Computed example of a mutant assay.
Amino acid sequence: MSSSFAAVLLAGGRSTRMKQDKALLHWHGQELWQAQLHKLQSIGAARVLLSCRREQPLFVSDDVEIIHDPADVDDGPLGAITRCLERVQTPLLVLAVDMPWMTVAFLREQLGKHENPDQGWFFRGPHGDEALAGMYVPAMLPHMRQALSEKNLKLQHVIEACVHSGSAVTNQMSDDQAAFFHNVNTPADLK
């Protein structure tokens, strides 16, 4: 991507189906959040953020900005992404901590394909738009803020509204790309 962008790792989920904090799962010799953060640090982002809960024991170097979820607000990934996008005011690549099969090569390829800094991009799979691995842009903020104010926290609805307004595009996911978006939600998924 020729223009500057930021990247954020979303690690603040409650992990209710996993029954333990997914960010702290062991993945190839390190905790999952560390593996995912390293991916974002290696793709050329001008700023790297980590969105998490204050009580999570995630310790980062000075070049990573931590954005804590407010303790008294439960607005899910939409709230976390909105807070981060408001902070950076530049295109923001979002990656969920529970997508360990996402590759640096795929992310770099997409950054090279999508050059418009005013248009977000996402992939549509069999379950709809993949909202937790894609590019959010400041032009999407009005839709995001409106959804938050209406307590409509479904990111897929926000993406649909942004596609309709022209501030985002979706790409049909190919069969070989589907594995990158696989989530680890349960112990069975991890195996």
Rank of each mutant, 00 (worst) to 15 (best):
P57G: 03
P117V: 03
S61K: 09
D189P: 00
L141Q: 03
L85W: 09
P142M: 00
Q110E: 15
S42N: 03
I81L: 01
V94H: 00
V169Y: 01
S3F: 12
S4G: 05
I43D: 03
S61E: 12
V158N: 04
V48D: 10
F122Y: 05
K191F: 13
A46D: 13
L32M: 14
S3V: 09
A161Q: 13
S61Y: 02
Q20H: 10
G76K: 04
T103L: 11
S15R: 02
P77I: 11
P100Y: 12
A80R: 11
D98K: 05
E109K: 08
A6E: 04
A80P: 01
A147D: 06
R145Q: 13
M173Y: 07
R17D: 14
N185G: 08
Q146W: 02
Q146E: 06
P187A: 06
A46K: 15
M173P: 02
A168M: 02
V64R: 03
C52F: 05
V88M: 01
D62W: 04
N183A: 13
L9H: 03
P138C: 12
I43W: 02
I67Q: 04
H68Q: 12
A80K: 05
C52K: 14
E160H: 08
Q146Y: 06
H182W: 02
H127W: 10
Q119H: 05
F180K: 07
H164C: 09
M99R: 15
Q41N: 07
K151C: 04
C84S: 14
P187R: 05
P70Y: 12
M1A: 14
R53F: 07
A133K: 05
A23R: 07
Q20P: 10
H164E: 13
R14N: 11
C84R: 00
H164G: 00
V137K: 00
Q146T: 12
V8P: 00
S15G: 03
T186M: 01
A178H: 07
W33P: 04
A35E: 04
T82P: 00
K19W: 07
D72R: 15
R53D: 10
A161N: 06
S165A: 15
